[in-house]
Design a protein around this nucleic acid. Structure first.
Length: 416
DNA sequence: AAGAAGTGCAACCGCGTATAT
DNA sequence: CATATACGCGGTTGCACTTCT
């Protein structure tokens, strides 16, 4: 190893160095210095997050990749909140812990600017204190609370860990798919001030398609959602805030969806390609967006395959099990590939074929994706894609909210 | 004032999972 | 398919600081 603390970028000293046999350069442990922080920040600015083991090679910083990742995520990354938890944050932590247990990372995903480590430390000290004081760990646990499963109907046979979350006043968007029933006016479900979504349907769910990638593996849905226009970079999302008429970003990494609960495009309508905000947000795929009249667009072939594969399976299941579900013909719409020469960007035009009975369409034209009313979706090179909830709302037709037992926003049960 | 005990927090470690080769 | 590597999560530790006696 030739790198070492020979430049101003490296801040290692002999203190805390781990010596190892075999002549390898020892790595430093212990607290980070401001100089080391600068080196790491400079690395991330230049190369981006990830590939943490490369930090040492590229900067000479004598820290292991793990240590770099931890330092970045817990202390250096932008938008981190410093200071004590607010009462509202504490309330959320208590409630989330009652639902999730020691799932610190999942809890952190719902507390913007907070890290899992921070929450974990807070909770552990809280436990000690409360145990010492003889107080219950969940001060509000005496009050039974209506909970709502995330995204999937209750009793879904394939849900490994049935999760539920309370109806927070703060925005935790909850999704459930419209399987048998829809909503007379789904716009009622999208609260513009509370920025939460709750759809409820307890009908059984068909068996989902297999999953492939880890971003489908987790158990809870969303949480990192926000107006696309409020951020310059898709990966830096405000935690809350669904605004109608506003394209949204979802970060697939934080979607944490359970088996088969990928937000099938059959339910998700998306960024209008004409919207300047979506164009400016994904400048790298602007040209392709412009060239496609609608459909889906993923810049990562792996993500695309997964999403389309699951969406297709979902479409068939939905159609077969719930023929009354809106627009079953949608799954038979022709899909047109729009693949750019580089092969890294793929767009599907899933708009209906006018005048064609879907069941009579050329099998070769069967879509690879079920996207009835979808106008378009965009994704960057990573895990982000955009949505327009206005179109999403238009997908739900049929039953009224009252028939489905949906509570209006101003009549939600409170946490406390 | 000084040592002990308590507290908060940063960082490390082990392990499981996803991905690459 | 097997192995290596990277990453992320949760548990634990160590230390600096504060409070108590």
């Amino acid at each position: 190893m030739n790198s070492g603390p020979s430049t101003s970028m490296s801040a290692s000293s002999s203190e805390g160095l781990n010596s190892s046999s075999g002549g390898e350069v020892a790595l430093k442990k212990g607290p980070w210095t401001s100089a080391e922080d600068k080196v790491l920040a400079a690395y991330v600015e230049r190369y981006g997050e990830g590939n943490w083991n490369a930090v040492r090679k590229k900067t000479g910083l004598l820290r292991c990749g793990k240590s770099c990742r931890l330092r970045w995520t817990n202390h250096l990354r932008p938008n981190l909140k410093k200071g004590s938890f607010t009462p509202e944050e504490e309330r959320m932590i208590v409630e989330l812990h009652s639902q999730l247990g020691n799932k610190w990372a999942r809890m952190a995903a719902q507390l913007p600017g907070r890290t899992d480590n921070e929450i974990k430390n807070f909770w552990n000290t809280r436990i000690k204190r409360r145990l010492r004081d003889g107080l219950p760990l969940h001060p509000c646990s005496q009050k039974p609370r209506q909970t709502t499963p995330l995204f999937l109907p209750q009793q879904s046979p394939f849900v490994k860990n049935q999760l539920s979350l309370p109806h927070y006043h703060t925005a935790i968007p909850l999704f459930q798919g419209p399987f048998q029933s829809g909503f007379h006016n789904a716009n009622h479900l999208f609260d513009q001030t509370q920025s939460s979504i709750l759809l409820q349907d307890t009908s059984p769910l068909p068996i989902p398609p297999p999953r492939h990638k880890r971003y489908c593996d987790s158990a809870a849905f969303p949480i990192s959602v926000g107006p696309a226009s409020s951020t310059d970079h898709p990966s830096v999302l405000p935690p809350h805030g669904i605004l109608l008429d506003t394209p949204l970003n979802f970060n697939l990494s934080s979607l944490q969806m359970e088996v088969g609960s990928l937000p099938s495009p059959s339910w998700f309508s998306v960024v209008n390609p004409e919207l300047p905000s979506s164009q400016s947000q994904f400048p790298g795929i602007l040209r392709t967006v412009e060239s496609c009249s609608g459909g889906f667009l993923y810049s990562d072939p792996g993500v695309f395959e997964d999403v389309t594969g699951e969406a297709h399976a979902w479409a068939n299941m939905t159609h077969n099990n719930f023929p009354d579900t809106h627009s079953p013909s949608g799954m038979n719409q022709a899909a047109t590939d729009l693949v750019n020469p580089s092969g890294t960007i793929i767009a599907y035009d899933a708009s209906p074929t006018p005048g064609i009975n879907p069941s009579q369409e050329d099998p070769m034209k069967q879509p690879d994706i079920f996207a009835p009313e979808v106008n378009g979706a965009v994704a960057d090179g990573g895990d982000n894609f955009g949505l327009d909830l206005n179109d999403m709302a238009s997908l739900f037709t049929g039953s009224t909210m009252a028939e489905l037992g949906i509570l209006p926003w101003d009549n939600m049960p409170e946490i406390y």
